[in-house]
């Protein structure tokens, strides 16, 4: 599974792993849907330090998580975004929607 989870009380940290492209995005989305829904966290943190590459498929993955948190009254933030992924988020204006650390 291209994700790793660390739960602390009501909060959940998800570590995305590997290269996020169209080929892998569907599997990652399904894994996130299943794991995040099962835990229903108050705060969801998506940690991207283990992501080696990300194209616009990653935007759809994160927006889906963000919508889920919005609908269930939770919050979401993204941290440790590698430089290449950061440029993709900036080009798409995603930082205006989802809070990103540093």
């Amino acid at each position: 599974m291209p994700i790793r989870l660390v739960q602390e009380k009501n909060d959940l940290t998800v570590y995305l792993q590997g290269e996020i492209d169209h080929h892998g995005a569907r599997g990652m989305m399904l894994a996130l849907d299943r794991e995040v829904s099962a835990r229903d966290p108050r705060e969801l943190t998506v940690d991207m330090r283990e992501v080696g590459f990300m194209d616009s498929s990653g935007i759809a993955v994160l927006l889906r998580c963000w919508r889920r948190q919005e609908e269930t009254g939770g919050t979401m933030r993204v941290r440790n975004v590698p430089a290449q992924a950061r440029r993709v988020f900036t080009a798409a204006g995603l930082e205006k929607i989802i809070p990103m650390d540093d």
Binding site: H22, D55, S56, S57, I59, A60, V61, R64, A91, A92
Partner: peptide, 11 residues
Amino acid sequence: DDSRSGMGFTI
């Protein structure tokens, strides 16, 4: 489908 963001050309 919903796994596409529509941002490909923008990028």
